[in-house]
Design a protein around this nucleic acid. Structure first.
Length: 216
DNA sequence: ATGCAGTTCCATGTTACATCA
DNA sequence: ACTGATGTAACATGGAACTGC
């Protein structure tokens, strides 16, 4: 039955133009908008009975009320999309800047590591020249990066790299692993919850590739 | 139970017009 | 006065859900 009303209200473009010209204003009054908005705020959809009731209250056709709600939902949705877009963009900017600072931190740690390696290399040569003391007791033979003792954690991880126990290639690989660990733990990465794009892989070799992908 | 036509509602895109800078 | 941008009421269309047969 509402369809009947609607079809009676369906004009050709020409008819509509004529009709609109005869009306003083197409816009609803402030009063009408105010009530419609307050209803919309409570519920964005109208039950048919309520629609008829509201239409009667406002002196409008039920069809007009239905259309107003349709348009209002569409406007709300597009605003929502804009809002979501802004939120996502902000989150992305934040992540990007975190990533940049992590890269810088990594760079500075690498430099520190180089210096320490140089220093320890020189010390060892010196001690060998002195011909005598046992240095082996202090190095961790299993290559575990999470050694203890009272050094800063990021330095602890690289403690055993000066040792001869690890060959050059293994040395480099372990350095990479530990550097990744020093920059950020997997838990930290997962906290970002970025849907996998930024998530590092589980295996250490894949981790190196992953890191290189982002840095290079 | 199932298929089908008719109806209603809704989301989405478009049009026509009013208003404003 | 003219014009382009913007907001909005109304419309068109297609799909989903529901109903009666």
């Amino acid at each position: 039955m509402e369809r009947e009303v609607e079809s009676l209200q369906t004009h050709s473009t020409a008819k509509r133009k004529k009709n609109n010209k005869s009306q003083n204003s197409r816009r609803f009054s402030d009063e009408q908008i105010k009530l419609l908005e307050s209803i919309f705020e409570a519920d964005s959809k109208l039950e048919p009975r309520r629609k008829v009731q509201v239409a009667r209250e406002l002196g409008l056709q039920p069809r007009q009320v239905a259309i107003w709600f349709q348009n209002r939902r569409a406007r709300w949705k597009s605003k929502q999309i804009e809002q979501d877009f802004r939120t996502l963009r902000n989150e992305y900017d934040l992540l990007a800047s975190k990533f940049e600072s992590l890269k810088e931190e990594k760079q500075s740690l690498l430099i520190q590591l180089e210096k320490l390696n140089d220093l320890m290399g020189k010390t060892k040569v010196h001690e060998e020249n002195m011909d005598g003391k046992d240095l082996e007791g202090s190095s961790n033979k299993d290559g575990d990066c999470e050694t203890t003792e009272e050094k800063p954690s990021h330095l602890q991880s690289h403690k055993n790299f000066a040792s001869d126990d690890v060959g050059n290639e293994g040395h480099e690989q372990l350095m990479n692993m530990c550097q990744v660990g020093a920059i950020v733990s997997p838990e930290d990465w997962h906290r970002f919850d970025s849907g996998g794009l930024f998530d590092p892989p589980r295996s250490s070799s894949a981790t190196s590739q992953w890191l290189n992908f982002w840095i290079n």
